[in-house]
Nucleic acid binder design. Structure first.
Lengths: 138, 138
DNA sequence: TATTGTTATACTCTATAACTATA
DNA sequence: TATAGTTATAGAGTATAACAATA
C-alpha cells in the first residue's frame, strides 16, 4: 500500500526537519547572544585558519558574491581581516585577535547548548552518526 | 577538553544538516518535475482535508499573511478552491479534483524517491525515529 | 474588542551577470 | 582565456502593520 509508505516516510521526514529546525533556533539564539547573525557565527567557526573567500563560499554552499558582503560586515566589526594570498587575485579571510576571542566564546556556548550532546549519550550519537553516514553515502 | 566536545558536536550537526539539505533538494526536484515550487508541493500534501487558512499558516510555521499569495497561485493553477467555513470569517482551502489527482502523483513520486526509505531498512528507520523522538522530547 | 483573511511594504538570503585585476 | 573578488540587481521567502468583514 503506497499511501502507508508515504505516510511513514513523511512522518520521519517531518521529525527530522523539526530536529534541525530546533538546532537552527538554538544556534541562532547563541549567535544573537553575541550580537552575531547565524551566518556570521557560522563563518567565525569556519575560520579556524585563514581561508580564501572562494573556498568559504564553497564550504557554505553559496555563491561567491555573497561572501563579499559577509566579509565586509565582519571586517567592520573588527573580527576578521582580508589578507592577500600568494596568488594575488586571492584574499584570505583571517580572524583578528578579537575575532579569535569571540570565536572561542562562541564555541563554548555552542558546545554548552548543543541539543545533540545534551540529549543523546555517546552510544546514541555513534548510532546516529552511522545512520547519517548511510544516508549521505553517494 | 572543550574543543574536542565542540568538534564532535559540530561534526554530527554538519552531517545532520547535509542529510536534511539533500532531502530538501530531492523534494524540490520532485516538486519541479510537476511544475510546483517546494512550498506549493508541501501545501498540497498538507491539504488531505480542507483546512482553514489560519491553521495552514500555523502548521507551516509561517505568518498568516503569506498564505494569501500561496493560495492565490494554487487557485490560479486550478488545484485548490477557497470554500467558506461555518464561521463566515474563515476560508478553507480545499483541493479540486485536479488538485487531488496531482497530490496523488506527487505523493507517489515523493515516496519513490524518498532517501529515507531507499537507504534505510525498516529496523534502521525505527532506530532513527527513536533518536529523533529523544531529541524532540520537551 | 478580538479574530480571519487581505494588502502594502520591507528585510533577509540567495543567485545571476557584468566588471576589474590578476593569472 | 580563465579565475578571484566585487558590484548591481532581482527573485524567493518571511515578517509587520493597517484594514474590512465578521464574531
Amino acid at each position: 500500500m503506497n499511501a502507508a509508505r508515504l505516510a511513514e516516510a513523511r512522518d520521519l521526514s517531518v521529525k527530522l526537519f523539526h530536529v534541525v529546525r530546533r538546532m537552527e533556533q538554538d544556534f541562532e539564539a547563541v549567535a544573537a547572544s553575541l550580537n552575531l547573525t547565524p551566518l556570521q557565527a557560522r563563518t567565525l567557526l569556519d575560520l579556524e585558519q585563514p581561508v580564501p573567500m572562494r573556498d568559504l563560499a564553497s564550504t557554505m554552499s553559496c555563491d561567491a558574491s555573497n561572501v563579499t558582503g559577509l566579509a565586509d560586515r565582519l571586517e567592520r566589526l573588527g573580527l576578521i581581516e582580508r589578507v592577500p594570498g600568494a596568488d594575488r587575485r586571492v584574499k584570505l579571510l583571517s580572524l583578528t585577535d578579537e575575532g579569535m576571542a569571540l570565536r572561542g566564546e562562541l564555541a563554548n556556548r555552542v558546545a554548552a547548548r548543543s541539543t545533540l550532546s545534551a540529549r543523546l549519550g555517546k552510544a546514541e550519537r555513534v548510532q546516529l552518526e552511522a545512520l547519517l553516514d548511510k544516508l549521505l553515502a553517494t
